[in-house]
Amino acid sequence: MKIAVCVKQIPDPASPQKLDASYNLARDGKLIMDESDSYGVEMALQLVDASGSGEVVVFSMAPRSEMSGIRNALAMGAHRGVLVSDDALAGSDALSTAKVLAKAIGREPFDLVIAGTESSDGYTGTLPVQVAELLGFASVTFAKKVQVDGGSLKVERQTEAGYDEVVSPLPAVVTVTAGVVEPRYPSFKGIMGAKSKPVETLGIGDLGLTAAEVGKTGAREEISEVREAEARAAGTVVVDEGDAFNKVVEYLEQIKVI
């Protein structure tokens, strides 16, 4: 089976996030693979293994031909990558990004498209279903268990109360939650091998898109202001000397919880 995995390359969450002068997330530093996409890559590798044959192709859109996140997925075992990188894409919103990824994925047939439920930097959470709609695919979001049985996808999908068993024909888009599988660490051999795996780089012209449809113009929304969220003042901090539990109990009494 042939699976496309959407991978976002994001600023390292360990360093503080900031916005640039046009209120876009600053992506000038080093970008890495979003950890929440490692579950999708692992899921795809396991499904291809289980089916006996096939291919895992990683798709990403990033500035400056950034490839470190794609290489990470290739080091885990994905077969090849497709990167869309174009100056015209700066400032793209989720829908514009979905248009780009749908065009890139739609150039060849896939049985399944896997994505995370939301990115760790922007967490818009709509891109996978937007891609599904643009490709004319079925979609199942928030999967905590995924199986492919013949031509059909079986998913345990999270719900408010528990989970639903959902079946879908292929091709489909599925979004996986963190914890759906345990992502493997790339081996040394995998890391070395990733360097020689093919990564195709495309611009928007290759996808038949124009600058007006993507980037800041295509986003058709403007941020007028960014401010700090209302801060909560810190209260009292006590170092436990064995009796700090009393402080908790006193506080609960004071607010009449007990």
Binding site: D93, A94, L95, A98, Y123, T124, G125, T126, L127, P128, V129, Q130, A132, E133, L134, S139, T141, A219, R220, E221
Partner: peptide
């Protein structure tokens, strides 16, 4: 979120989450 994403693509309108 599913509905907003699908509708956004169907109507070609951005969405703010």
């Amino acid at each position: 979120r599913d509905a907003a994403g699908r509708l956004s693509a169907k109507l070609d309108r951005p969405v703010i989450t």
